[in-house]
């Protein structure tokens, strides 16, 4: 009897384990506090600096929800959804159609657009991504690029290439003008709508049974199936939610940054969201929000103070930042570096 016990227990404890570095490492907290203090001090010293910072903050907010959408898909499938920006553009056109062309009141149209986006996102997953998901990650990447081109084509086929004008729900009156820094209601509205929708998603993911199921499906599909979680359905819902966040981003970006609706509405924004999500650490929705705000401000300041960047070099500048992060801080501010214990 003793021999049998011995053979069964010679391999004690986990052979390979994975431990994760705790969230928000101290360095990140110190860094962020430093950045905030520097921005406030700068704003107190120079009014131009303050105004530029606020403009950057609002700009960052407008792509924060798209960055969160990218992170949701990244956690579930391990890739960035390259079509996320075009999906957002398409749903912004849907908003235009319902609100401006069909004259449905703004917030009702907004709600209808969100409903459409959910179905649209889930549809994209079920029809295009799910069939190839088990093949390889490369297959999924190729499919999302194909989806990018497909949606772009459909938008250009249905809608005219000329810029379209949408009504903004927010007035451009100044909401707050103290300390020489002007903020209008459109900025406040964008901020509240975006952060509100991201916060709702946070509550859904962390405090509901559906959210628990979606997280389980994303992180541990195998065990999730064994406890009866319908993994495909959960992932489809996740894609629907990502599409909703993308739609919020598209509509808000149009309303406060672009002011016109064109089929290229989100092409740069997609890149900015990539950069933001990367700053945040790819796997953290909270990190994506912080990354967006930070990147919005960086972009705005660079444009203001580094003469040659202007509007033309924004994209190369974004790419340069992306490169720097990948080289020096690949896990971003909130990323969890996986430590393999062998």
């Amino acid at each position: 009897m003793a021999t049998a016990d011995a053979t069964a227990t010679t391999t004690t404890e986990p052979i390979v384990g994975r431990r994760r570095v705790p969230e928000a490492p101290n360095g990140t907290v110190i860094f962020l506090v430093g950045v905030v203090i520097a921005l406030i001090l700068g704003s107190l010293i120079s009014k131009t600096f303050g105004q530029t910072t606020v403009i950057g903050l609002v700009q960052g907010t407008s792509f924060a929800s798209l960055a969160v959408a990218l992170v949701i898909i990244y956690r579930a499938t391990g890739v960035f959804n390259f079509a996320q920006g075009e999906m957002a553009t398409a749903t912004t056109y849907v908003m235009y159609q319902i609100n401006t062309a069909w004259h449905v009141t703004y917030w009702l149209a907004f709600a209808l657009t969100m409903a459409f986006s959910f179905v649209f996102g889930a549809f994209c997953y079920v029809i295009f991504v799910r069939p190839v998901e088990r093949r390889s990650i490369v297959a999924v990447i190729i499919i999302t690029i194909a989806l990018f081109l497909l949606i772009d084509g459909i938008v250009q086929w249905i809608f005219p290439p000329e810029p379209l004008y949408m009504t903004s729900p927010f007035s451009v009156n100044v909401a707050f003008g103290g300390l020489g820094v002007g903020v209008n209601w459109a900025d406040v509205g964008t901020l509240l709508t975006t952060l509100g929708s991201v916060f709702l998603m946070f509550l859904l993911f962390n405090f509901t049974k559906l959210g628990l199921g979606m997280r389980a499906a994303a992180f541990r599909p195998g065990p999730a199936r064994l406890v009866g979680v319908r993994v495909s359905r959960m992932l489809a819902i996740g894609w629907g939610i990502a599409a909703i966040l993308g739609a919020v981003s598209g509509i808000m970006y149009e309303a406060t940054q672009a002011y016109v609706l064109t089929p290229q509405l989100m092409s740069n924004v997609l890149l900015y969201s990539f950069v933001s999500a990367t700053i945040g650490g790819l796997e953290s929705p909270f990190g994506a929000v912080v990354g967006s705000l930070l990147f919005g401000i960086i972009l705005s300041l660079a444009q203001q103070y580094v003469g040659f960047i202007g509007t033309e070099l924004q994209v190369p500048f974004a790419l340069a930042i992306l490169l720097v992060i990948f080289l020096f801080k690949p896990h971003g501010l909130f990323g969890k570096a996986e430590v393999a214990r062998v």
């Binding site: 628990l212 199921g213 389980a216 992180f219 541990r220 999730a224 406890v227 979680v229």
Partner: peptide, 26 residues
């Protein structure tokens, strides 16, 4: 049918309590 697989199928990133909740998911 409750299947405890090899490797235990722990939801490692989740809290202990969430693991129990996932058990009762259905």
């Amino acid at each position: 049918v409750a299947h405890v697989p090899d490797g235990r199928g722990t939801f490692s990133e989740f809290t202990v309590w969430e693991n129990l909740k996932l058990g009762a998911f259905c």
